[in-house]
Simulated scan of single mutants.
Amino acid sequence: MIEDFLNTVDERTFKRHGESHVPGERLTSPQALADWLTARGLPFGDTPPRAPDVAAAVALRTALRKALVADTSAAAALQDHPLRLAPDHSGGMRLVATSGPAWLNTIVETVAGSVARGEWARIKLCAAPDCRWAFYDVSRNGRGRWCAMEVCGNRHKTRTYRSRRNGDA
């Protein structure tokens, strides 16, 4: 869900098979946010999202994407979203966010949980400057750079090869 939330903004500008990818913003209105939340099973209760909710979602997403680019922890991105420990149904403890609507708290709790489990380090933005798609790095050593090796990685390697080849000529 974290990658899906981070990808509600699409910064991709590359061409593939002669077609230019058009970047875009998915959270453009309260209705767009409501549709996105509904599609992911995140309840927003009886009160549908409003413009401030869209702004809060975009602000959190922007902060999380900046944390990924700066290769820092998510702590700075979550600083405006208080967390506390609370007992869960199994007798253990869980992180609980108390910063806003239930859907926003769920996103914050998911991010905080991924940080606590060490999974946040595996969430990355594609290294291709014309992509920047968020993905979960499943490589063995956790050093994956591309959202898709067959697309972004291949384009990078092809550019590097051509650059070397043209430099040698």
Rank of each mutant, 00 (worst) to 15 (best):
residue 158 T to A: 15
residue 126 C to H: 03
residue 167 G to Q: 13
residue 48 P to G: 01
residue 2 I to W: 03
residue 155 R to H: 01
residue 127 A to Y: 06
residue 145 R to L: 14
residue 130 D to G: 02
residue 36 W to N: 12
residue 98 T to V: 14
residue 35 D to K: 01
residue 56 A to F: 08
residue 95 L to A: 12
residue 43 P to N: 04
residue 5 F to Q: 02
residue 157 K to M: 09
residue 7 N to K: 06
residue 50 R to C: 11
residue 96 V to C: 00
residue 99 S to N: 07
residue 161 Y to S: 06
residue 86 A to W: 08
residue 43 P to V: 06
residue 110 T to A: 08
residue 14 F to Y: 15
residue 60 L to W: 05
residue 91 G to W: 07
residue 15 K to Q: 13
residue 47 T to E: 15
residue 98 T to A: 14
residue 52 P to E: 10
residue 95 L to F: 06
residue 64 L to G: 09
residue 62 T to L: 08
residue 72 T to P: 07
residue 129 P to L: 09
residue 19 E to G: 10
residue 150 E to W: 00
residue 144 G to F: 07
residue 123 I to T: 13
residue 127 A to C: 05
residue 132 R to P: 03
residue 63 A to H: 01
residue 96 V to P: 06
residue 101 P to N: 08
residue 140 R to L: 10
residue 17 H to I: 00
residue 127 A to P: 06
residue 162 R to I: 06
residue 136 Y to N: 09
residue 128 A to P: 08
residue 22 V to A: 15
residue 57 A to R: 00
residue 101 P to D: 11
residue 24 G to K: 00
residue 72 T to N: 12
residue 83 L to D: 02
residue 25 E to Q: 15
residue 36 W to V: 10
residue 64 L to K: 12
residue 165 R to Y: 10
residue 106 T to G: 02
residue 124 K to L: 03
residue 155 R to M: 05
residue 101 P to F: 06
residue 91 G to P: 07
residue 124 K to V: 01
residue 43 P to D: 10
residue 134 A to H: 04
residue 49 P to W: 01
residue 94 R to P: 03
residue 117 R to D: 15
residue 28 T to G: 11
residue 60 L to V: 04
residue 8 T to I: 11
residue 156 H to P: 04
residue 26 R to I: 00
residue 154 N to P: 07
residue 4 D to I: 10
residue 70 A to F: 04
residue 161 Y to P: 07
residue 144 G to L: 03
residue 50 R to I: 14
residue 145 R to D: 07
residue 163 S to T: 11
residue 71 D to A: 15
residue 122 R to H: 12
residue 64 L to H: 10
residue 20 S to V: 15
residue 123 I to Q: 09
residue 77 A to L: 05
residue 119 E to F: 11
residue 51 A to T: 14
residue 68 L to Y: 03
